[in-house]
């Protein structure tokens, strides 16, 4: 079964699920609305044997990096952080990569959510255990909440960390070590 056939079957139940305009290279890429993330993955796992969750990550599309996010001025190439890029949008994009180990088919699913405090998507905890720490990492780095995750707390940074480092507007506040 090709990715398009799976998409057609899923679209019958989830009309919000569409093909992405700018796909991840060499991956069938779909955009999924936030509210149906969990059910779509449940269906993909149970009906289409997508049993291996590769990656959960996110991108902040709000524009170029903020040099204040670095304690010392970073080695940004000249002109890189100047003008806001044409791609700037006020959204977080949560990216999932999933594989069916039996067939070797790979999929990329994207979920665009408005960029605000307390932005949230449903957690995949329980469907894929691999989501456990990866979602905690995304929460740590972007402050995106995963509803239904039983242990959503910071994982890599300190508890005293201010702000979410991978957000483009992150500003580093000097602490006792700087």
């Amino acid at each position: 079964m090709t990715a398009d056939e799976i998409l057609a079957k899923l679209q019958a139940s989830f009309p919000g699920l569409v093909k992405s305009e700018a796909p991840v290279k060499e991956y069938p890429t779909w955009t999924v609305p936030a509210e149906s993330v969990r059910v779509v993955f449940e269906r993909l796992r149970s009906k289409f044997s997508f049993d291996y969750l590769d990656v959960v990550t996110a991108t902040d599309w709000s524009g170029p990096i903020n040099p204040k996010g670095y304690p010392q001025s970073p080695a940004v190439a000249a002109g890189a952080a100047a003008a806001p890029s044409a791609t700037a949008k006020d959204i977080f994009e949560v990216v999932y990569l999933v594989t069916a180990l039996s067939t070797g088919m790979r999929l990329c699913l994207r979920c665009e959510i408005p960029r605000k405090e307390g932005a949230s998507v449903p957690s995949l905890y329980g469907i894929f255990m691999a989501a456990d720490w990866q979602e905690r990492e995304v929460y740590d780095m972007f402050g995106i909440h995963f509803e239904g995750h039983p242990n959503l707390k910071r994982i890599l940074t300190m508890e005293t960390q201010q702000g979410y480092p991978l957000r483009k507007d992150y500003e580093h506040l000097p602490d006792k070590f700087d």
């Binding site: 670095y70 304690p71 070590f177």
Partner: peptide, 14 residues
């Protein structure tokens, strides 16, 4: 990692 938010810039600071 001199410009990283998570790194102590030299152990002689502590």
């Amino acid at each position: 990692f001199y410009d990283s938010y998570a790194v102590v810039k030299g152990v002689d600071r502590i």
